[in-house]
C-alpha cells in the first residue's frame, strides 16, 4: 500500500483534518502528569467538548454527518483498535530505527539507553518505559514544532499497518520515518505509546467512555466498534435506546 497518502492535502470536511496532533498530545500529557482523577477527567472533557463544539460549527449546514470523535478516540484508546491491522513494531525495532535515523554511535550512551530500556538506569524511574527514555534521547534532536493533524497521523498509521500486512519492511520503515521526522519529541513519545498500544494515562477506558457518553461502554460491549460508538453517541443528549432503534 502506498505510504504517500498522508502527503495529500487534508480534507476540510472532518474535524480531525483541522486539529493539530500537538493539541491531542498536550491534552494527553496533562492527563498523565496531573495526579487527581477530577483533573484528569477535566482535561479530557475540555478536549472532547471543544471537539464537539467545533464539529457543530464545521458541519452546521450538513445532513447525515458521519464525522465524529473517532479519529481522536482510536488514538486515545489504541488497545481497542479494530479497523487498522497490527503495526508489527516493538520497542527493540524502534530503538534500532532511532539509532539509525539519528546516527547515534552504536556503542554510545544513548543507543544503549534505547536498546536496554528495561534496565534500571537514572533516577527518573522510567526504567521499562521506552517512550519516556526515547523522549529524553529525542528532545535535543527533533523538530521544535509538529506539523501533523490528527487526520494525517491516522493516515500515516494506516500506511504503517498496511506496509506491515504486506510484509514490506522497507516501506514500513519508510512510512514510520515519514511520521517521526514531522513530529516533536513530545509527539513522538505519544506516537510510540499509541503504536505500542499502552498510553499509561492513569485513567481507565471505562472512565474515558463514561466521559464521552453514559452509554458508550455498553454500546462498545455490544458492538466492539469504536467508530460506531463515536458516531452513534456523538450527541450527548442522545441515549442508547434511541440508537438501538437504528441499530436493530
Amino acid at each position: 500500500m502506498a505510504s504517500s497518502s498522508a502527503s495529500q492535502p487534508p480534507s476540510k470536511k472532518t474535524v480531525a483534518s483541522h486539529v493539530p496532533f500537538a493539541d491531542l498530545c498536550s491534552t494527553l500529557e496533562r492527563i498523565q502528569t496531573c495526579k487527581s482523577r477530577p483533573e484528569k477527567t477535566k482535561y479530557f472533557k475540555d478536549f472532547l467538548d471543544s471537539w464537539r463544539k467545533f464539529h457543530d460549527a464545521l458541519h452546521q449546514k450538513e445532513k447525515d454527518v458521519t464525522d465524529s470523535f473517532y479519529p481522536a478516540m482510536r488514538l486515545i484508546l489504541p488497545q481497542l483498535e479494530r479497523e487498522r491491522m497490527a503495526y508489527g513494531i516493538k520497542e527493540t525495532m524502534l530503538a534500532k530505527l532511532y539509532i539509525e535515523l539519528l546516527n547515534l554511535p552504536k556503542d554510545g550512551k544513548d543507543a544503549a539507553k534505547l536498546l536496554h530500556y528495561r534496565a534500571p538506569a537514572g533516577s527518573r524511574g522510567d526504567a521499562g518505559d521506552f517512550a519516556m527514555i526515547a523522549y529524553f534521547v529525542l528532545k535535543p534532536r527533533s523538530p521544535k514544532r509538529g506539523r501533523l493533524t490528527i487526520e494525517q497521523v491516522n493516515e500515516h498509521l494506516d500506511a504503517i499497518a498496511n506496509n506491515n500486512a504486506a510484509k514490506n519492511k522497507g516501506l514500513l520503515k519508510k512510512s514510520l520515518l515519514q511520521l517521526i521526522t514531522q513530529s516533536t519529541a513530545l509527539e513522538q513519545k505519544w506516537l510510540i505509546r499509541m503504536i505500542i498500544k499502552d498510553l499509561k494515562l492513569g485513567i481507565s477506558q471505562q472512565t474515558i467512555f463514561s466521559i464521552f457518553h453514559p452509554d458508550a461502554a455498553e454500546l462498545h460491549n455490544v458492538t466492539t466498534d469504536l467508530e460506531k460508538v463515536c458516531r452513534q453517541l456523538h450527541d450527548p443528549s442522545v441515549s442508547l435506546s434511541d440508537v438501538s432503534i437504528t441499530l436493530f
Binding site: K12, V15, H18, V19, P20, A22, D23, C25, S26, T27, E29, R30, D46, F47, S50, W51, K53, F54, A57, L58, L186
Partner: peptide
Amino acid sequence: DADVPRWDAFFKCNKL
C-alpha cells in the same frame, strides 16, 4: 475560506 471555523477558537491550550 471565511466560512470555515478555526479550531484555535474552540480549543484553548497552553502548548507544552
